[in-house]
Each structure stands twice: as structure tokens, then as C-alpha cells.
Design a binder for these strands. Sequence first.
DNA 1: CCGACCAAATTGGTCAGACCAAATATTAGC
DNA 2: GCTAATATTTGGTCTGACCAATTTGGTCGG
Lengths: 241, 241
Amino acid sequence: MSDTNTLSHEICGILRDEILLQRYRSGERFPSERDLASRFDASRGAVREALSQLDQMGLIRSQPGGARIQSIDSASIAILGPLMVLNEFPDAELVDQFLQTFAALTSLSIKGAIEKADEAQLIQMTKMVVEMSRYANDFETMQPRMSLFHELISNITDNLVVRLIGNDLKAQFVEGMMQSGIKPMMNELSLEGFFKKLEISISKKDGAMAADAFDQHFEELRRATKLAIQTREQELSLKTA
Amino acid sequence: MSDTNTLSHEICGILRDEILLQRYRSGERFPSERDLASRFDASRGAVREALSQLDQMGLIRSQPGGARIQSIDSASIAILGPLMVLNEFPDAELVDQFLQTFAALTSLSIKGAIEKADEAQLIQMTKMVVEMSRYANDFETMQPRMSLFHELISNITDNLVVRLIGNDLKAQFVEGMMQSGIKPMMNELSLEGFFKKLEISISKKDGAMAADAFDQHFEELRRATKLAIQTREQELSLKTA
DNA sequence: CCGACCAAATTGGTCAGACCAAATATTAGC
DNA sequence: GCTAATATTTGGTCTGACCAATTTGGTCGG
């Protein structure tokens, strides 16, 4: 969020990961502020701020008599990025859940955008899709253009709820993937098919068709990402042996 | 989240609402901790905690030299509930966006649940749908059962990303609606049709059909909620005149 | 042995004052 | 008017203190 070099953020990160690693049981009392201040050789004020952050993430519940560990189910989505990269390589299942959720939200957005777009916007959308399709064989050059396309869609749809979720999830997801060096290799033919279908659906103003195109696109992305993670795991296993 | 009767939470809530009411421009410097401590007749420690909360919501960016106001686009979904009830009656557009987002996430969940459910779970789902359909004419009795159904779906699908989003959004949405006393009146025939279609889709293990049933259900809920808000607005207008 | 009750200890919530690093505002010089 | 130096402001953190709320441990009675 902001100046995350502060002591309280550092303490929060360490405690967050301990909680996510299940070092504490749900309902258990968390160490006291005074104990944590001693453990981290910090002031109680810095520890209080760290605990307030954990509280706001839903990981603990602060109350007089001592904070309690909360169930992960009541946590905020802010924990998903850290949860994804808790171990040596990303949690493949959680990564897949991210992608499924992106797909669902994108489906909603593209339908809304095609419904709401004026002629100029539809033309712009088509232009961007054509531009992107030139890079079906170059994922890294295509990706920033895809992001711009998503932004355009989001602006046309103008659904704040979806935007805030999408921004938050994407930031965490992208950071986690970069951190672990996972790069999915998309199938070129699949990508070309996607762009073609998307272009047609826009010209026909067929939101359902566009949504279907994106669904297929995300299925391919899920496949490619799963493969990339497996490959990475195997590399790491060979390295250890 | 937790003990929200604390001074820091109170201060945070007041400042959050001022920000959401656009009392400050994006990029502008926020009042200093010392000024805010004076304004609220509180210690700097309590103010610091409040600002840390605002920072974590993405509403401000704390840094030496003074915190800066951030664009709403970078905020966390935790602001959506408060944003919804900023004024006398809920923001109808935002309420609708909530419902659209619930629909998209539910669609994903029901498809996943039908795909993953074993026989016992399918039977349980069917039972719950039949139980619910008995209350098609009594929204308030039906609603808790619908919540349980959603929980079952969520448990079967087991997508943590969707669960955390759903839990957070739902908590904020329900609180906002209760606070404003808005109660949508669902069309009984529509509800009955929904339950029937849902029951059939489960027995056929047809996830797409179930998703379609929920889409239609949410369309009806959107219509009913929009009407309820309009009715409320008109009541309040008459009251003022 | 178990449950109820009470006192002591522990814990969170907040305060005031101090100090240092980083950013901002002001002033002086060209 | 522009730039650099200086002063001021601001955030980040610390220490020690106090009060309200919760937890713990001990005692007593059934």
C-alpha cells in the first residue's frame, strides 16, 4: 500500500505468514503486545500498529484480554497474495482459483462493456483486439496490451465493485507470479482463435459470444499456468536431487 | 472486524467518510497526525492507528512529509459498504453493482459445485432447494436457507478466492441494506420458477443450466431491489414535502 | 471432584513527551 | 526567476504511565 518499509509492516508480514502457515489454531490467543514487543525488540506502539493491520486483514480479532486467531474464512482478500507464495513455489490450486475468478469477473465485464459501448468505443475495442492479435506468438508483448484492453472494458462497464476486486487480486497475483518467476506459455493457435472470436463478437455486439471467448482464453491460461508451475516444481526437484 | 468501539476506529470511520464524500482531492496532502490529534482531542497514537487503517484501505498513502489522498480505484473492497450508505438512502447504482458481482461469482460457484459434488451432496442440494421453494412467498424465511445453500455450494466448490470475496462483500452489503431498511419484494412466480429450474439442473447435473437459473434469479433480485430503493426515495421525498 | 466466587495479574487502549529521519517550505544568493 | 541552503514540519518510533476489560489462580462449599 504505502511505505511498507516501516517496522510495523515488517512485523505484520512476519506474523501474517506465521498465521497463514498455521502456527496458531483458530480461536487461540495470540501473543501479547508486550511479548511481541520484546520478541521483535520494538516498541509496543509499533507492535500495536502491526496487530491493527492483522486485525484489519481479518486474521486476528483484537480485544481486551488478548487478540484471538480468526478462521481464514473471515479474512480479507489481502491475504491471498501472501498465501499464494507461502512456500517455495506458488500454490497451484490457489493460482487456479485466482484465474477462475478473473474469468468470472471478466465475463461479467465484457458482457457489460459490449452492451454499454457506443460506436467509437466498439471501434476502439476492435482496434485493440486486432493490435493484440499481432502478438499471439509473443505473450510478454501481448500482455500489456491485454491489460489496457481490460482497463478499457472496465471503464466502459464502470462497475466499481468489480474494479476494486480486480485491481486488488491482479496486483497480488502479478506480484506473486513475478516473485516466483512462473511464466505460462500460451498456445499460439489458441490465442489466435481467441482474438478472432473476440473480434467477431464485438462486431456482432454479441456479449455472450465475447464472454465465451474469454472463458476459453482463461481455460487455456489455466492449462498453461498449471503446466508452468509443474515444470518449475520438477526443475526444483531435480535441483535438489 | 473486532472491537470497533475504539477511538482509532471511530476516527478512521469519520475520516473514511470524509474521503469518500470527496472532501479531499486525489493526490492532496492529508491533515497531519498532530493536527488530527488536536481536532479529535486524542493522542497521536490513536490517530496513527486510524491513519494506518485508512492506509490499509487504500484511501491514503502514508509517507514521511504527510499522507496523500489516493484514487478510489486503488482502494480495497472494504470501502464498498460505507460507500453504499454514504447518503440518506443507498446508492442504487452501487447496490446493483454488488448484485451483478454476486451473480457472477455465484454462477462460477454453482457450476463448480455441480461438477464436483458427489451423490450425497447432490441429494443434499436438491433437498435444500425443495425446502427453500416452500418459502417462495416469504422472502425473509427463505433468505437464511438461501444463505445455507450458498455455504454448501461454497464448501463443495472450495474456491478460497471466491469465498473471501463473497464473505466480505456479503457482510458489507447485508449491513448496508439492513441499516437503510431496504427490503426487496421478490415476485413469487419468478422465485418458484427459479427453484424449479434449479432443481432440474441439479438432477441433470447441468451446471450451465443452474448458472442460468441463478442469473435469472439475480435479475429479478436486481429489479426488486431497484424498485424498493426507488420506493424508499419517494417515501422520503414525500416526507420532506 | 466440580462449580462458583473473588482477588490478583495480565492484557488491550490510550495518553504525554521525546527523539530521529525524511519531506516540505522558506529564505538567501546569483 | 531559479537554485541551493536552511529551517520547519511531518511521519516513525521510543519510553513510561494509567485505566478498563479479561484472564488466571486460589479458596470455599456442595
